[in-house]
Amino acid sequence: MAEQKTPMQRATPGLLIAGSLAGVGAIMVGLLSVAPKVDDGSGTLAAADQPTTVQIENAGAFVLPATVGPGGKGATLTPARPDAPAPLAAAPTVPPIPKAKTKAAKAKARPSRIKIPKIKVNAPIGAVTVDIKGNLGTPPLTRPNQTGWYRFSPVPGELGPAVINGHVSTRKGPAVFDRLRELAKGDQIYVYRSDGKVTRFTVSGIEQVSKSSFPTSRVYGNTKDSQLRLITCGGVFNKEAHSYTDNIVVYATLSKKKG
Rank of each mutant, 00 (worst) to 15 (best):
A241E: 15
V130N: 11
S194L: 08
S153T: 13
T147H: 03
D246T: 11
N247D: 08
Q208A: 01
N238L: 07
E207K: 03
Q146W: 15
A241Q: 15
A241G: 11
F177Q: 05
S226K: 05
D246E: 10
T253P: 09
H242C: 07
S194T: 08
R200V: 04
P154V: 06
L159V: 02
L230G: 08
L136Y: 03
A127D: 07
Y190M: 10
S217H: 11
G160H: 00
E182D: 13
Y190D: 06
N247Q: 13
V198W: 08
T202Q: 05
A162C: 14
I231H: 12
F152A: 13
D246P: 10
R151C: 04
L254T: 00
G148V: 01
Q188E: 03
P161R: 06
T245R: 10
I164T: 14
R179I: 03
K224C: 01
I206R: 03
L141T: 05
E182C: 05
S153V: 12
K197V: 06
V203Q: 04
T138N: 13
V203N: 05
W149C: 10
L136I: 14
V191E: 02
V163M: 15
Q227E: 09
D187W: 13
L254W: 03
T138G: 08
L141W: 00
V250E: 12
